[in-house]
Design a protein around this nucleic acid. Structure first.
Lengths: 247, 247
DNA sequence: TTGTCGCCGTGACTCGGGTCACAGTGACCC
DNA sequence: GGGTCACTGTGACCCGAGTCACGGCGACAA
């Protein structure tokens, strides 16, 4: 995840050096975000110009379902979760977003209220782009519109897959599915992003206990291994079969 | 849902009259589709130019999950369903599309395989726009890109809502939800698009029998009325309460 | 009329998985 | 060290809802 520090020449600069240096670093960062990947340095700078940075402590509610929404957020550091919250406190996790991910584009596009809560799961720093500024920039940079379409497509595919798994799979099947989705293949083993059973259960609409039992079962069968809370996939094929409807 | 028949002047026309007349009618039709609503007649004609019309008999598979996809489809007449199909034959209905709805944009945007099956539920006529042609046109007409973003946003909101209801609501709650979603307010009563219990059950991930029982319960409580297979909402407030998590 | 067909309603049985209640296990901090 | 806290593992119990099995009913064709 390395990228060239803006060595060489820098675009015209008028303001105080310290400010511009930080804007350069923001522009560098934006260049690593898929949404802005296609842009050249000048365009990245103009997007950096319209950002404000905000910090949120762990557990802070960043946006609430039903709020009028007029900003796009990019995670610069930390982690946030997108959740639906029922009145009795139960939570459904629609997604966990890390560095380089973004949220808030729906309200930005259609102007309707926020469709979910977003809550910081660790101390996080977010770049905020307000609607009017963002739209003006996007009109100059149609590639960003295209990148947005790609991103929404990806999410829609994922959401449809989740719906399918909720209806067609039993809980162990859904557990297998999240494991596979959060696996990063590598040597010597393919690891899984660490997360608590509680979080997994809220991602797949199950109880913590049932997830726990499924994980035990997978260990006994030798499909996964757990060492010091780090899960690794041992038998990917078996997991994939378990995650397929109607074995 | 009426719109002016192209009275008055018509844009330049070279081809055989019969062909152009039909293209004019297609352009008229496209003008009623939200995706193309912002376009002027000339632009509508240029989109009409790149369409091919296809007919599909009831039950025909129009696209299959996993296929490489490179076309956008607009429903001109009839009705189709978007479904996930498990190996054992169980089906999840992700959506039912009628006249003016469209599908296939995901593969068009990201070039990945189709994410679901689309099957004609009645004899249907579809307009097909192939990827290369469509992209070329969209580059001329950025409003269409924006309309696509609006449409994907709408669907994503809906998909997230479905996920929430699958996890947070019991079956009667989900039944109440589909009823409300398919209600068209009007005088003297707010009607619900007719659909079989079978179809409803596949939309909400439940069995036909459980849906049947929920409908009976709602009738007994006086929340809905059924006459000759036409369902009408009597007590909308009660239904809305039932469709909210954690009553 | 009588068959056939697709859809609806209901009872009986079963079971996946939610809930409750605890016990165990690290990790971290006084 | 010991206390606190967040997480995990497991047994017991129970309920929502899936499945199976019918019977009824309206529509439509022969």
């Amino acid at each position: 995840m390395s990228y060239p520090l803006s060595s060489g020449h820098v675009p015209l600069r008028f303001a105080a050096p310290s400010m511009s240096v930080s804007l350069d670093r923001i522009a560098d960062f934006l260049g690593t975000v898929p949404l802005f990947r296609e842009l050249d340095r000048v365009a990245l700078r103009s997007f950096a110009d319209i950002t404000r940075e905000h910090k949120y402590g762990k557990g802070t509610v960043i946006v609430s379902e039903g709020d009028p929404g007029d900003a796009l957020y990019v995670v610069r550091t930390g982690e946030v979760k997108v959740v639906l919250v029922a009145e009795d406190g139960r939570e459904v996790i629609l997604g966990v977003l890390g560095v380089g991910d973004h949220f808030g584009e729906l309200s930005l596009i259609d102007g309707r209220p926020r469709s979910a809560h977003v809550i910081a799961t660790s101390t996080s720093s977010l770049l905020v782009l307000r609607r009017a500024d963002f739209r003006r920039q996007v009109e100059q940079q149609p590639q960003v519109g295209w990148a947005l379409l790609m991103e929404l497509s990806r999410r829609l595919r994922q959401a449809d897959g989740t719906i399918g798994s909720l209806v067609l799979l039993d809980v162990p099947g859904r557990v297998a599915r999240v494991l596979l989705e959060n696996a990063t293949p590598g040597q010597p083993a393919t690891l899984i992003k660490p997360m608590t059973h509680q979080v997994m259960s809220q991602m797949i609409g199950a109880s913590r206990e049932t997830v726990s039992r499924a994980m035990s079962e997978f260990q006994e069968k030798g499909w996964i291994a757990v060492a010091r809370r780090q899960v690794t996939i041992v038998d990917r094929v078996a997991l994939e079969a378990r995650a397929r409807p109607a074995l």
